[in-house]
Measured scan of single mutants.
Amino acid sequence: EDGINLEEIREFAKNFKIRRLSLGLTQTQVGQALTATEGPAYSQSAICRFEKLDITPKSAQKLKPVLEKWLNEAELRNQEGQQNLMEFVG
């Protein structure tokens, strides 16, 4: 629908959760960090719904690039050390 690749979103949601957990981050931490930079659309409950795919494809499509960018950045910081990650997450 609307050129939205559901399979891709499903895959990303699954990987997002795995990668988030491997960084040792909670949904709350991700939500707080993103709410600070991106606004309330990225709250803990939004992250939770995204991971469960309990949102419309359109919403998922909107969240995905922001979550992807944030997660990549978080992983980079983590490679530089846990301290850097925690500063990034705030």
Rank of each mutant, 00 (worst) to 15 (best):
E1W: 05
E1Y: 06
E1I: 14
E1P: 00
E1N: 11
E1A: 03
E1H: 01
D2L: 08
D2H: 10
D2C: 05
G3L: 15
G3E: 15
G3Q: 15
I4E: 08
I4G: 01
I4R: 03
I4D: 06
I4F: 14
I4L: 02
I4Y: 12
I4Q: 01
N5P: 07
N5H: 14
L6N: 12
L6Y: 14
L6C: 09
L6V: 08
E7H: 08
E7A: 12
E8H: 09
E8C: 02
E8Q: 10
E8T: 09
I9D: 01
I9V: 08
I9K: 01
I9G: 02
I9T: 09
I9Q: 06
I9Y: 05
R10P: 03
R10D: 06
R10E: 07
E11F: 06
E11G: 04
E11C: 06
E11S: 06
E11W: 03
F12I: 05
F12G: 00
F12L: 03
F12Y: 05
A13V: 04
A13I: 04
A13P: 00
A13W: 03
K14C: 04
K14E: 08
K14M: 06
N15P: 03
N15L: 09
N15F: 07
N15I: 04
F16H: 00
F16G: 02
F16S: 04
F16Q: 03
F16C: 03
F16L: 05
F16P: 00
F16M: 00
K17N: 14
K17C: 00
K17F: 00
K17Q: 10
K17W: 02
K17I: 06
I18H: 10
I18Y: 06
I18R: 15
R19L: 00
R19D: 01
R19M: 04
R19C: 09
R19K: 07
R20F: 01
R20G: 00
R20V: 01
L21A: 02
L21W: 00
S22P: 01
L23M: 09
L23E: 09
G24Y: 03
G24S: 01
G24E: 04
T26R: 00
T26E: 03
T26G: 05
T26S: 11
T26L: 00
T26D: 06
Q27I: 13
Q27G: 01
Q27T: 15
T28V: 11
T28H: 15
T28K: 15
T28R: 15
Q29R: 02
V30D: 00
V30I: 08
V30C: 04
V30L: 03
V30G: 03
G31S: 15
G31D: 07
G31L: 02
G31E: 06
G31F: 08
Q32A: 14
Q32S: 08
Q32F: 04
A33S: 13
A33T: 07
A33C: 12
L34I: 09
L34P: 07
L34Y: 00
T35S: 10
T35M: 13
T35C: 14
T35V: 10
T35P: 02
A36Q: 11
A36G: 06
T37I: 07
T37N: 07
T37V: 11
T37L: 11
T37H: 05
T37E: 10
E38T: 06
E38M: 15
G39S: 05
G39D: 06
G39I: 06
P40L: 07
P40W: 06
P40D: 12
P40Y: 04
A41S: 12
A41V: 08
A41Q: 13
A41G: 14
A41I: 03
Y42E: 02
Y42G: 02
Y42N: 07
Y42F: 15
S43M: 03
S43L: 00
S43W: 10
Q44C: 06
Q44T: 15
Q44L: 07
S45T: 13
S45L: 08
S45F: 10
S45H: 13
S45Y: 12
S45P: 09
A46G: 02
A46Q: 11
A46H: 09
A46F: 06
I47P: 00
I47K: 00
I47Q: 04
I47G: 02
I47F: 00
I47H: 02
C48A: 15
C48W: 04
R49W: 00
R49L: 03
R49A: 14
F50G: 01
F50L: 10
E51Q: 02
E51R: 01
E51S: 01
E51D: 00
K52S: 14
K52P: 03
K52T: 12
K52W: 00
K52F: 01
K52R: 13
L53N: 11
L53S: 02
L53C: 12
L53T: 04
D54C: 08
D54M: 08
D54L: 08
D54N: 00
I55E: 03
I55S: 06
I55M: 15
I55C: 15
I55Y: 13
T56F: 02
T56A: 13
T56W: 01
P57M: 13
P57S: 07
K58T: 14
K58R: 11
K58N: 14
K58V: 10
K58E: 15
S59E: 15
S59K: 13
S59L: 14
S59M: 13
S59P: 01
A60V: 03
A60K: 04
A60G: 12
Q61R: 15
Q61Y: 08
Q61A: 15
Q61V: 12
Q61F: 11
Q61N: 13
K62F: 10
K62P: 01
K62Y: 10
K62A: 13
L63S: 05
L63C: 02
L63K: 01
K64M: 12
K64R: 11
K64Q: 09
P65F: 08
P65G: 08
P65Q: 11
P65W: 05
V66P: 03
V66H: 03
V66M: 06
V66I: 09
L67G: 04
L67Y: 09
L67N: 02
L67S: 03
E68T: 08
E68D: 12
K69A: 09
K69E: 08
W70M: 04
W70Y: 00
W70N: 04
W70A: 06
W70R: 04
L71Y: 11
L71M: 14
L71H: 03
N72K: 12
N72H: 11
N72V: 10
E73N: 07
E73D: 08
A74G: 03
A74C: 06
A74T: 10
E75V: 03
E75L: 04
E75G: 00
E75I: 04
L76V: 13
L76N: 09
L76K: 15
R77H: 09
R77A: 14
R77Y: 06
N78W: 09
N78V: 10
N78S: 15
Q79Y: 00
Q79N: 15
Q79D: 13
Q79L: 11
Q79E: 11
E80H: 12
E80T: 09
E80I: 14
E80S: 12
E80R: 10
E80W: 06
E80G: 10
E80L: 13
G81Q: 07
G81I: 05
G81V: 05
G81W: 02
Q82W: 07
Q82L: 07
Q82N: 11
Q82I: 04
Q82M: 09
Q82F: 05
Q82D: 11
Q82C: 06
Q83T: 13
Q83A: 14
N84K: 15
N84S: 15
N84F: 06
N84V: 10
L85T: 12
L85S: 11
L85A: 11
M86V: 11
M86Y: 10
M86N: 13
M86H: 10
M86W: 10
E87F: 01
E87M: 02
E87V: 01
F88R: 12
F88Q: 15
F88D: 12
F88T: 14
F88Y: 12
V89F: 11
G90A: 12
G90I: 01
G90P: 12
